[in-house]
Design a protein around this nucleic acid. Structure first.
Length: 110
DNA sequence: CGTTTGACGGTCC
DNA sequence: CGGACCGCCAAAC
C-alpha cells in the first residue's frame, strides 16, 4: 500500500491487539496513537461495524469502564455478552474489576 | 464554509 | 459520587 493508513486503521490494529479477557479505553488508544482526542477512537470504531474486518470493539470501553458503545452493536447486550464470554464480568453495563483487567497499550505494550 | 454532532476525557463544584 | 462545562478532532449537514 501507499501508506494511506488512516487513524482509523491504526485504531483497528490496536483493538486487535487487545488480549481476550482484557478491556481497553478510548483514551488509552488515543494516547497511544497520539490522536489528540478520544473521540476519534469512537468515530473509528463506529466504522469498524461497516468494516469486514473482525475488530473486537467490545473490548473497548470508556474511562469509567462503562460499555458506552454497546448501543452501536447489532444488539445492545451483545457487547456485554461477548465480554462475559471472555471472562470479563459485566454488571449494569459496567466492567467489574475494571482497574484490574484494564489494558493500556502504552503500558502493557512496549 | 459555518454549524452540529459524536462509541470521550478531564476538571470543577 | 455525580452533574455541568470545556476541549478535542473529524465527518455530516
Amino acid at each position: 500500500m501507499t501508506g494511506k493508513e488512516s487513524y482509523q486503521d491504526r485504531v483497528f490494529d490496536v483493538c486487535k491487539m487487545i488480549p481476550a479477557g482484557r478491556v481497553s479505553t478510548y483514551g488509552a488508544i488515543s494516547n497511544f496513537l497520539d490522536l489528540g482526542s478520544a473521540r476519534m477512537v469512537g468515530w473509528a470504531l463506529n466504522k469498524c461495524i461497516m468494516s469486514n474486518d473482525p475488530v473486537p470493539a467490545h473490548r473497548v470501553v470508556n474511562r469509567k469502564g462503562e460499555l458506552s458503545g454497546r448501543i452501536h452493536f447489532a444488539h445492545p447486550d451483545l457487547m456485554a455478552k461477548l465480554l462475559n464470554k471472555e471472562g470479563v464480568v459485566v454488571m449494569d453495563n459496567k466492567v467489574q474489576n475494571f482497574e484490574v483487567i484494564k489494558w493500556d497499550p502504552s503500558k502493557e505494550l512496549y
